[in-house]
Write a protein that binds this DNA or RNA. Structure first.
Lengths: 262, 262
DNA sequence: CGCCCTATTGAATATAATCAACCGCCGTGG
DNA sequence: CCACGGCGGTTGATTATATTCAATAGGGCG
């Protein structure tokens, strides 16, 4: 199995389909999305280990015509130059945990638009979206399954944008905590007790606020007993209170001209 | 051809494939994305007229297993309840002009997550993403073409989120004007002179600021001679200056912990 | 002509950014 | 072993940006 280390500054070499791990799919957490009709050996995707702080791919890398399913660990997605070329520091545009996918936004593109950096030692599984892969049924993921993933990703991004538009910093943090909680709950883990694999700076960048602001919010949340947080371990998350905070009141932005306006 | 009026408060009835307009595809602006191998009569999609202020679909509507290509006019996309149910006013999450597509985020979903409201009298073309449609080649859009569209949409939303995270209000407005300019330029229209089909309130909601703020920014932009704006007509847009403004300086958000941080 | 809705302008306020200092942890190395 | 330095995180004081509330102006349409 290939391993990517933080020191490897050059893009990892393209992966030969022939290197496929025959048993990968049998244990794959995405089995429900897969076809399951192909022979086990044929559907298997290459697995890759990505060490903490290493990049699975970087913005500008040539796209290898595959997406990655996260088997273990966690990633942050970085946008290199948010708008102009003068931007110096990359921006966190998202986090990804198992059983989510990476590089969905690279479909059909020549180069990656963002980087995927492991927050801890992680493992991913490659799934090709090559034309032949679909034709030859040597593929774990079906076309309709891929459509679902892509559409879901669009909705997720729309939710993030909506949140960024009309919430205050405290609501953004609450929304993020709720998203993590819901994700863990949906995968059989505790909804009230989990670990934050990312740094405060990453959280701040993702939420579009400063690190200082995140820090202040955390003490405020603790004081209001919305959660407990030691270093990166969340516990006693008050899901209902957070939900009230997010849904609660005041959007910060103007209301549009409803359905009768233009 | 079916027409949707603003008064029609009930969802429009499902469209029968048999009603397809035989000549639609011949004039279709999306021809480059289409297969072109099917017989003209087979590939045609139903066309729908949507009157100003009318909804092509609404959040909560049953999804008709089709996407819409905009032939003429313009739309705004509304998210009904941004987060909680207590939210009163819908939020503008995007605008769409020809030759863009609508309802890409509904793929595989049972209900629409947002509403599409015409900003002016508009016309769209239906393209089915039904399983049979792809199988039978009775379809204008190919599977790979659909993948491209979906991935592009993800990237677009990511760009919007990135903008909302680390720009000030003036940069957001500049970014929006540049996007419109680039879109028009890419489709053979003027990059410096065009019409804004949406209201100030819609702009404000989309940018995540108040209408007052947009108003003040506009006078500021005029004073700085970044553009001229009479009512809804933009002219003499200074693309370079706007680009400098967007790329220019200061993100409002914190920098993440780079590649070496976690 | 006059009403209604959109858009604009103004003054006061609030939220979060900025600048700066400090703490605590951890790995390095004397 | 402990001192050092770097980094992530926290806290404080000040400032800036955009919101809020309020009032006014302008245009389209009956």
């Amino acid at each position: 199995m290939e391993t990517i280390s933080p020191q490897a500054s050059v893009p990892h070499p393209p992966i030969r389909p022939s290197e496929a791990n025959a048993n990968a799919c049998a244990r794959c957490i995405h089995l429900s999305l897969c076809q399951g009709t192909a022979a086990p050996g044929q559907t298997a995707g290459q697995r890759i280990r990505v060490e903490r702080h290493a990049s699975l791919y970087r913005a500008g890398d040539t796209v290898g015509k595959r997406i990655y399913s996260i088997r273990s660990g966690s990633f942050k997605l970085l946008r290199a130059a948010p708008h102009g070329a003068t931007q110096t520091t990359p921006q966190v545009i998202g986090f990804a945990l198992p059983p989510e996918f990476l590089a969905l936004n690279a479909l059909g593109e020549a180069q990656h638009a963002c980087s995927a950096v492991a927050l801890e030692d992680s493992e991913v599984c490659c799934i090709s979206w090559d034309r032949q892969a679909f034709k030859g049924r040597r593929q774990a993921l079906t076309r309709p399954g891929l459509h679902l993933l892509l559409a879901r990703e669009i909705r997720r991004e729309q939710h993030i944008a909506a949140m960024l538009r009309n919430t205050h910093a405290d609501q953004r943090l609450a929304d993020m905590l709720l998203a993590l909680s819901a994700h863990h709950a949906a995968n059989g883990y505790s909804a009230t007790r989990f670990r934050l694999p990312m740094s405060r700076c990453d959280i701040a960048s993702y939420l579009g606020v400063t690190a200082e602001c995140v820090s202040r919010l955390i003490v405020q949340f603790k004081r209001r007993e919305l959660f407990q947080l030691r270093l990166r371990d969340v516990s006693q998350l008050d899901v209902e209170a957070l939900r009230r905070m997010v849904a609660g009141q005041a959007p910060a932005a103007a209301a549009p001209a409803a359905e009768t306006g233009n």
